[in-house]
Amino acid sequence: MDIIVCMKRVPDSAAKITVAGDAKSIEQDGVDHVISPYDEIAVEKALQLKEAHGGTVTVVCLGVAAATKEIRQALAMGADQAVHLKDAGGNRGPLEIAQALAGVIKGRACDLLLFGKQSIDADNGAVGVMVARLLDLPVVSLVAQLDVADGRATVHRQSEVGTEVIEVTLPAAFTVQRGLAEPRYPKIKGIMQAKKKPLEEIDAPAPAGTMALDKLEPPAAREGGRIVGEGKDAVGELVRLLSQEAKVLS
């Protein structure tokens, strides 16, 4: 079974995000980058499926030159090879990201195409479904359980109606949710091997400019910080404030 996982390099969720002077990007100083957490879950699941059924795991990453670090991380976890779509800059909307990814995936052997449900920087949650559509693959999002047998996948999708049990014939695409797998830490041996694994580098097409980022700004500050009191004696006053001042108890 040949599995392709799309992954993105993002600032760590613990990072403090500060808007840079150009009001279009963020300060990079002191910001650690990681594989976007949901993408990392997808990489882990791909490795588990490969260990159970055989096959290959290829990671595809659209990202700046520095994303080599996160790509090597995925290789160190156990992926067999990687494609780095090198991004030379410019703003890309989900459509352009999806078109670039679909462009390199098309024609490659792929039974299972995995994505994180969303990246934790742009928070669009759109690219996985879009790539699937562009490649005319069936797609299920928000997958929290995924089993493969006899060329079919049975998955659990966590939606607002509950947990949907869905069957689909492969090849198919999935966007994954927490709970599917716990990402492993690479072992020393894996880190050594990762340095020698094939990493194909391709220049990403220039963005077509269908979506512009006009401005980035810090979120509106909250006033906050008002301590009503200490212990249970403060409850009466809190309830009064909630009903009379904030008027949120109607």
Partner: peptide, 22 residues
């Protein structure tokens, strides 16, 4: 919603439209 977050990108990809989310 979980439905809108799937259907919107599928439509955007099928019609080659820009998508702005959330």
């Amino acid at each position: 919603s979980t439905t809108g977050r799937d259907l919107a990108p599928a439509l955007a990809a099928a019609t080659q439209s820009a998508i702005l989310t959330d």
